[in-house]
Design a protein around this nucleic acid. Structure first.
Lengths: 153, 153
DNA sequence: GCTGAAATCCTCTCGGG
DNA sequence: CCCGAGAGGATTTCAGC
């Protein structure tokens, strides 16, 4: 698939907001029959445009109300050290997002936990155990103003 | 629903990783028949534990490869000003996440765009048009180390 | 709350334009 | 690329335990 046409884009826009829409429903809004929509979705999945389908949960209801943003700078910046940091971060299930950044801060982390106590314990027993961390700054989310997984395109 | 039992939790853990799993598949792994799994999922949706089901797209393939983290501090902090900021941010489709923070930084924003030029234009023509912004600092994502919507529970 | 069966709807395939 | 039809499954409901 070299390029997506407008129909593909429309399908992606629908599915990134509601992946439970049936092919028939989508077909109806696009004035098509089910088969081409079905085939297109399958192609979009196969080619990686759609990475996965997930349920988004309510973090407060499931008992993980605390979100922290953590800014980390490494002490040493050789390739080996950065790769090792990557690996170690991926082991930490509490980390939802981790980005390697350009600039004076090396990494942004988004961490989700059940309480502030748990955060304290997380920093103490897990994050600070990772070698090579120079600076570590934590910020706490007071309120989620906006949170979507959809892209604007 | 006052409290979730272990079966509910297992269902949520499965669905937040793959919402396309059929009730039958889930029922098999939990050694149940399809009906109770079906009923539980419906209850979990109705009660808000499951907020929505979405397709996660590949941002590079759909042409939105640039992610920026933006830290914003307001000049004035009255209630009215904060609410107004919330409202104005929600209008900006390029903003995927916005958190009101505790500490010297007031807001974290995650912004997704097609290019650095588009980011420049976004700041110039949209973000900086919002009243009351005091400090605005941008960071760019070099590499996404980890990005999941699943919670660890 | 669970099971099993039955009805309905959707998914998925395929012949044809 | 699309349509339409048909077989096989999944969803959804419900009586019974």
């Amino acid at each position: 698939m070299e390029k997506l046409d407008e129909t593909d884009l429309k399908i992606l826009r629908i599915l990134q907001h509601d992946s439970k829409k049936t092919t028939k429903e989508i077909a109806d809004t696009l004035h098509l029959s089910a088969s081409p929509v079905y085939e297109r979705i399958r192609r979009l999945e196969k080619k990686g445009y759609i990475k996965r389908n997930v349920a988004l949960l309510d973090k407060k209801l499931i008992g993980r109300p605390i979100t922290a943003i953590c800014m980390v700078s490494l002490r040493y910046h050789n390739e080996g050290f950065i790769d090792k940091f990557d690996q170690q971060i991926k082991e930490l299930k509490e980390v939802q997002e981790c980005y390697h950044m350009a600039g004076k801060v090396d990494f942004f982390l988004k961490i989700n936990l059940e309480s502030l106590d748990a955060y304290h314990e997380f920093i103490r027993s897990k994050l600070s155990k990772i070698d090579n961390i120079g600076v570590l700054e934590s910020y706490f989310v007071l309120k989620e103003i906006l949170h979507t997984t959809a892209y604007y395109f």
